[in-house]
Simulated scan of single mutants.
Amino acid sequence: MSNFHPDQTKLAEYVAGTLSYHETLLISVHLHYCKECQQAVQRLEALGGVLLDDLPGEPVGEDLLQATLASIQNDEPVHRARREEVGRYYRHPEVPAPLQKLVPRGFDALPWRKLLPHLQVCDIELSPQGPKISLHRIRPGGRIPRHTHRGSEYTVVLKGGFSDALGDYNPGDYLHRDADHEHEPVAAESEECICLTVTEDPLKMTSWKWRWMNPFLS
């Protein structure tokens, strides 16, 4: 069960469809694990439906009504085919459903690169105008040197767990870190830890032993 969640404002924006792609992906992955937030989203969707029902109606011309119905009917086979395609090709049991398209063959098949002695990274979505979406893989018991962040970093734990001075984190937990947070994550001893992360800017090593890496992380 998840213990760290997006706030209610983020969930409301998720329901309203006003979040960016990367924020929507993060919350979708969190919802895969978290029944508490699933229920909160259902309540928000129900509330949105009630509010829509209370809005005054506007007359709709017959031509517009028929065009809308025809559009829905024409689009349905396309939507159904897409759902069937996703179900046919993206079913790796280790990967949460919202990530299946980005990680279709499982975590082990990804082109991981070693960033630190206990840490591997794989960038799964890069946009020149937006944050970087990556997976981080920490060996069992591995310690990531103390660091902070030049910008916001969002994390959802996918497998295993880790801890720092602020808490213990397990699958589904949703975290936000920024320049005000300095931490030194340590993976659980029992198994490797894999996290989905979205970073606006590279992390910044604050441990004297690892500060030499900062120019290479920019």
Rank of each mutant, 00 (worst) to 15 (best):
E189T: 04
A67R: 15
L64D: 11
A12G: 10
R80I: 07
L110C: 03
V95H: 07
L166I: 14
D7P: 00
L52P: 02
L52H: 06
S20L: 14
D7G: 03
L99I: 08
H149W: 03
P98Y: 11
L196I: 05
R80D: 01
Y89K: 13
K101F: 10
P131S: 02
Q66E: 14
G61N: 13
L217W: 06
E45L: 10
L64W: 03
L47M: 09
A81G: 00
Q39R: 15
R139N: 04
W212F: 13
C34Y: 10
R43L: 10
G161Q: 04
L25K: 11
D178E: 13
G160Y: 02
E184S: 14
P185L: 12
L135W: 01
E13N: 15
L69W: 12
S20F: 05
G87F: 13
P140S: 05
P145H: 13
Q129H: 15
R91Q: 15
V78D: 01
Y21F: 14
H79C: 14
L65H: 13
S134A: 09
I144C: 04
A46M: 12
G57R: 08
T197F: 12
L203K: 05
L25R: 03
H181F: 07
I72Q: 12
H22L: 07
G141P: 07
Q73M: 08
P140L: 01
